[in-house]
Design a protein around this nucleic acid. Structure first.
Length: 107
DNA sequence: AGTTTGACAGCAC
DNA sequence: TGTGCTGCCAAAC
């Protein structure tokens, strides 16, 4: 497995509960700012248990995919206190974690 | 080594 | 808002 893949998985471990980040953010954290799509593929094939795959969403607050059950992803997010309306996360900006702040909840 | 495949991003309509 | 198109990149073929 490539270094990039390991960095992606490592980035996942940093996402605080109740917060979300985007595929693009993860790509950036892993050192490949334009590899958002590749991140999705890596996560699709990832088998590491215990990683918060559901906290990685698409740009602009869209929920994005989750294998065969995107609704499970929405349910998991809801279970962490986020509100999902249709394909979007309500107040996405407030819950977004970019990796720059070490994860302390904002206001 | 060239092609295809997506859990994507960003912009033009 | 939503849809379509292009650029992108790691992996599997």
């Amino acid at each position: 497995v490539s270094v990039f893949t390991r960095r992606v998985l490592q980035a996942l471990t940093r996402i605080p509960p109740g917060r979300v980040t985007t595929y693009g953010d993860v790509a950036r954290l892993a050192g490949r700012p334009r590899a958002a799509r590749a991140v999705g593929n890596i996560m699709r094939a990832a088998d590491e248990p215990g990683l918060p795959y559901h906290r990685v969403v698409a740009s602009g607050g869209r929920v994005g995919g989750y294998g065969s059950s995107p609704q499970l992803k929405a349910a998991l997010l809801a279970a962490e206190g986020l509100t999902v309306r249709g394909t979007r996360i309500v107040d996405f900006r407030r819950h977004r974690w970019t990796g720059k702040t070490r994860g302390t909840p904002s206001h």
